[in-house]
Simulated assay, not measured.
Amino acid sequence: MTLEQPLGSVVQGSLSQGLEVRLHPDVLVEDMRVGKFLVVQGVRSRFFCMLTDVSLGTSSPRILSNPPDPANTFLQEVLAGSGTFGTIDLTPMLMFTPESRKQEGIQNSKL
């Protein structure tokens, strides 16, 4: 995993209640650690967040009632990312909105 590779997509949340991120299929849930700091990149701002929880989800309750056999790696790979997925909860701690150099120049000239 590189620093520029996205881990997932924000699927719901708020600044006060936290953000829920659905992990991309190629991201291992085991690599996620509570207390880790992550950056959520928005359109204009970056949100520095702390990872507060890791969970697993399924797209169908049938998967929970009839999980694949641990020896059936083919079915596990088929379900990974579409039928089953990892989610992480993030608590936003700091928001950073960089200003463009053009705006900084205009603001500095007024001083």
Rank of each mutant, 00 (worst) to 15 (best):
S9Q: 15
L19K: 02
P92W: 06
S45E: 05
G18E: 01
Q41T: 03
Q12L: 10
M95R: 14
S60F: 15
F96A: 05
S16D: 09
R22L: 08
Q12K: 15
L38D: 02
T87E: 10
D89G: 07
V78A: 09
G13W: 10
P67D: 02
L56H: 08
E99M: 01
P70S: 03
P70H: 09
V78K: 13
D26Y: 15
I106P: 00
K110S: 06
P70R: 04
K36A: 12
L15M: 11
P61E: 05
L23G: 02
F48M: 00
E99T: 03
Q76I: 05
N66K: 09
T52A: 08
F48R: 01
V29P: 01
M93P: 00
K110W: 10
L51Y: 07
V10H: 07
R101M: 02
S16M: 03
T73G: 04
V29K: 04
S109A: 15
S16L: 09
S14Q: 01
M50F: 09
D26M: 12
Q5D: 10
E4H: 12
V34C: 12
G57I: 04
L3M: 13
P61I: 06
A80W: 14
P61C: 05
V21I: 15
T73Q: 14
A80D: 15
S45G: 01
E104A: 12
K110A: 05
F85D: 01
L56T: 11
D53S: 08
S109Y: 11
V39F: 07
Q12N: 13
F96I: 03
Q12C: 11
S16P: 00
L3N: 13
Q103I: 06
L111P: 00
L3A: 14
T91G: 00
M50Y: 06
G13C: 06
T87W: 08
Q41N: 02
G18N: 00
V21P: 06
E20W: 11
M50I: 10
S9L: 14
L56E: 07
R44D: 07
E4W: 10
T84G: 09
L15T: 04
G57L: 02
G83M: 09
G105D: 01
T84R: 13
F48H: 04
D89F: 08
G57P: 05
E30K: 13
A71V: 09
K36L: 11
F37W: 05
V40G: 01
I88G: 07
Q107I: 11
E4S: 13
R44Q: 12
G57M: 04
V39H: 03
V27K: 04
D53T: 01
T87M: 13
G81K: 06
R22D: 04
V54I: 05
P68Q: 11
F47H: 04
E77R: 14
D26Q: 15
T84Y: 12
S9W: 14
V40F: 11
R33D: 11
F48Y: 10
N72G: 02
R62V: 03
S59A: 12
P98K: 11
S100G: 13
C49M: 01
F37K: 10
G35Q: 10
V11Y: 08
